[in-house]
């Protein structure tokens, strides 16, 4: 029989890859490892109430036991983890980012997750450019264009490349693209199927070897009191369900969803542009400027921005294939 019945709350629909391929399988791993003593019910689409930015607070307060959320929904709460969103820190490998965040967690990141027991942090496959009709090869081609930004650091990337960031809710993006309210968007390929972006855009652009322009970080976290109330063997099961092998699998799941998205676009006749090394080099200067801006802001907030960037780069490099 189940001794522990937990609720996992998140913001995407039950048909999303995150729900079907990651969260439900993870819950099943926990259930198997505890031989059915733990039962995790996954509630998609904010069915337990509130808006996505409230998820972190819901986990902290025990409104729900577990959450999956996008760190970017609550800017300001996870300033250290944000280093992994930065372009040139995150390059092209979600698995390496996942493992690097695990490696750095205790020493560098843990203190900003007060009231939470983090199960795992994960990145998506990376932001890339979706353009309505701009077949661009250099930052100069972006000059003066309007792009939908995915996050705070994403807005900085867009600014650094000479374009203007525009904030808008995701569901409004297809309409905005089709009427050229924005000329493009900075988001991963994985969003393409959900929004049918192949219909509004002609060009999907990324760097060589799947190099991207930054990423977004997600967390699965448990309420701290709930965690501490669990017996050691159950806690162990959660840790094992979320171990490095799982982080690698999660990286693969998101890579797979991303590949599925770009295939859908190319099959619909879109052009998948892979920048050459030389072309991509022209993007790196501005993107390093974003990192400098981030370091400066982090230092201003009393963090050691430099060492966070260096540690993150080193950790990602050590886990890269």
């Amino acid at each position: 029989a189940q001794d522990y019945s937990l609720k996992l709350h998140h913001f995407l629909s039950e048909r999303s890859p995150a729900h079907q391929q990651m969260l439900v399988p993870w819950a099943e791993r926990v259930e198997e490892l505890t031989e059915g003593r733990v039962d995790i019910e996954v509630y998609p689409s904010m069915t337990l109430g509130g808006r996505p930015p409230e998820l972190v607070q819901q986990a902290r307060d025990g409104v729900v036991d577990l959450i999956w959320t996008l760190n970017g929904y609550t800017p300001g709460l996870f300033p250290r983890t944000e280093v992994f969103e930065l372009p040139t820190v995150f390059v092209n490998d979600p698995t390496a980012a996942n493992l690097a965040m695990r490696e750095m967690f205790d020493e560098y990141l843990a203190e900003e997750y007060k009231g939470l027991q983090v199960m795992f942090l994960q990145a998506h496959a990376g932001n890339a450019l979706h353009m309505v009709d701009a077949d661009l090869r250099s930052p100069a081609d972006l000059e003066g264009l309007k792009l939908r930004t995915p996050s705070r650091t994403g807005a900085w990337v867009i600014e650094a490349l000479g374009a203007s960031p525009v904030a808008m809710p995701v569901p409004e993006l297809p309409q905005a693209l089709s009427k050229k309210v924005v000329e493009g968007a900075l988001i991963p390929w994985e969003i393409i199927p959900a929004l049918q972006l192949q219909e509004q855009t002609d060009y999907q652009i990324e760097g060589p070897d799947m190099s991207r322009f930054g990423t977004s970080i997600f967390q699965v976290s448990m309420n701290k009191d709930v965690w501490e109330s669990l017996p050691a063997d159950i806690q162990d099961a959660f840790l094992q369900a979320s171990n490095e092998e799982w982080l690698t699998e999660v990286g693969g799941i998101w890579r797979g969803a991303d590949d599925f998205g770009i295939n859908m676009a190319t099959e619909a006749g879109n052009t998948h542009v892979v920048l050459s090394d030389d072309e991509y080099a022209a993007f790196e200067g501005p993107m390093n400027g974003v990192v400098d801006r981030w370091i400066e802001e982090a230092n201003g907030a009393g963090l050691d921005g430099n060492s966070l960037v260096e540690a993150a780069r080193a950790a990602i490099a050590s886990h890269a294939e």
């Binding site: 930015p53 972190v56 607070q57 902290r60 970017g72 609550t74 800017p75 300001g76 709460l77 007060k114 930004t149 996050s151 705070r152 807005a155 960031p165 904030a167």
Partner: peptide
């Protein structure tokens, strides 16, 4: 108080 303590802020303009 929570919003202040945890430094919730807006995405682009960083308004508390």
């Amino acid at each position: 108080l929570d919003t202040k303590e945890y430094n919730y802020s807006s995405t682009i303009l960083s308004v508390p």
